[in-house]
């Protein structure tokens, strides 16, 4: 079982979280072209090793998190809030 160290709640089972997706996508602006949106929505790298992905602490604090996880071993290197302001709060409280 993957254990995720939520910056707000502490280390919890992955069953408390919902998987989001690729955390590195820069979503285009709403008025961007179909081509840009297609690129953002449908094209994904199939990474072997560490990748950044979003997880939602849906049965916890409801925070969206960026998790750096190995797709080979499930090892987790880092967990941060997605929201930059929350990231700062967490950094300052370390």
């Amino acid at each position: 079982m993957i254990r995720i160290n939520c910056p707000y709640c502490g280390e919890r089972d992955h069953s408390e979280f919902s998987y989001g997706g690729d955390a590195t996508i820069n979503y285009p602006s709403l008025d961007a072209s179909e081509k840009e949106w297609t690129q953002a929505i449908f094209f994904r790298k199939n990474i072997k090793g560490f990748q950044f992905e979003t997880w939602h602490h849906s049965n916890g604090c409801r925070m969206w998190l960026v998790v750096e996880r190995s797709t080979v071993t499930h090892e987790i290197k880092s967990v941060k809030p997605c929201h930059p302001d929350l990231q700062k709060v967490v950094e300052n409280n370390k």
Binding site: G20, A23, Y27, T54, H56, R62, M63, W64, P81, C82, H83, P84, D85, L86
Partner: peptide
């Protein structure tokens, strides 16, 4: 809605 507010439209 939470995802949009926390990840895209912060």
């Amino acid at each position: 809605l939470e995802e949009l507010l926390q990840t895209r439209w912060t």
